[in-house]
């Protein structure tokens, strides 16, 4: 559904020297799949996600969604930032309704707002302002705000990165449920191997300098995913080995082996 062909992007560091954020990356994202981009900081995973969103443009190469070139942001590609970026002057329901308002379909579609508040589990908070919410609740609002537009793909940029461990696990389950209920295609950027295995169908492992996709791992666990079962642990080991081979140091991770 989304095709990324030979995409490169360069940025200039503080000294003015060019750094290859992405080098000739190609990837295909299938309809309805959950794909994670994982890798160390600076490997270009967020850059790639922003290119898919249309927030940035590649230096060379092309991106397509359903055969059409991606040139600018659109409501068909919803984006959730690490910091929820809710509008502090709007209540939960007003934040979620932004997409409908921006597209001038609020009057016909405002019935969707309570539906999506319910979907992300925030019943009873519709009139709250962002400063009254916890970090996890804010991300729930951000996810609902992106989903109300019924996007073709939901792009999650480390949405759980700033949350504590308990909230993170809770939200991972919510994301799984939302995916089951809506069938949305999802691309997740993360640096948490367990999170990637727990949620994804495929995991693209990226490396830095130059940023590129090193390997794609298929997650073939069909039943409920248990972080302590052998198949999960095996995948975790495999993913971490790939990251090690790619020169990434992951210390103190169970089953991860020694860093090289």
């Amino acid at each position: 559904m989304i095709e990324i062909r030979n995409v490169s992007r360069i940025y200039y560091d503080t000294a003015g020297l060019p750094v290859e954020a992405l080098q000739a990356v190609s990837l295909e994202i299938r309809e309805g799949e959950f794909l994670s981009l994982i890798g160390p900081s600076g490997c270009g995973k967020t850059t790639l996600l922003r290119l898919i969103a249309g927030l940035d443009l590649p230096r060379s190469g092309e991106l397509f969604i359903e055969g059409r070139a991606i040139e600018k942001p659109s409501h068909e590609r919803g984006y959730v930032f690490q910091q929820a970026a809710l509008f502090p002057w709007k209540t939960v329901e007003e934040n979620i309704a932004i997409g409908l308002k921006a597209r001038h379909i609020y009057k016909e579609k405002k019935g969707l707002v309570p539906e999506y508040i319910h979907l992300v589990g925030l019943d009873g908070f519709s009139k709250s302002y962002p400063h009254e919410l916890s970090g996890g609740m804010m991300q729930r609002v951000a996810i609902a705000r992106a989903l109300i537009n019924k996007p073709k793909v939901l792009l999650l940029d480390e949405p759980l990165g700033a949350l504590d461990a308990f909230t993170r696990i809770e939200l991972q389950d919510t994301i799984r449920r939302i995916r089951r209920e809506t069938g949305t295609t999802i691309v997740l950027v993360t640096h948490d191997v367990d999170e990637a295995i727990y949620l994804s169908d495929r995991i693209a492992i990226m490396t830095a300098r130059p940023g590129k996709i090193n390997e794609i791992i298929k997650v073939e666990i069909n039943s409920e995913r248990d972080r302590n079962r052998d198949d999960f642990i095996g995948l975790r080991r495999r993913a971490l080995e790939k990251l090690h081979l790619a020169g990434v140091v992951y210390a103190n991770v169970q089953g991860g082996g020694e860093a090289i």
């Binding site: 249309g54 927030l55 600018k72 942001p73 984006y79 930032f81 932004i98 997409g99 921006a102 705000r145």
Partner: peptide, 9 residues
């Protein structure tokens, strides 16, 4: 950025 991905002009 978030507004533009939500369809804002």
């Amino acid at each position: 950025e978030v507004s533009r991905t939500l369809g804002a002009n």
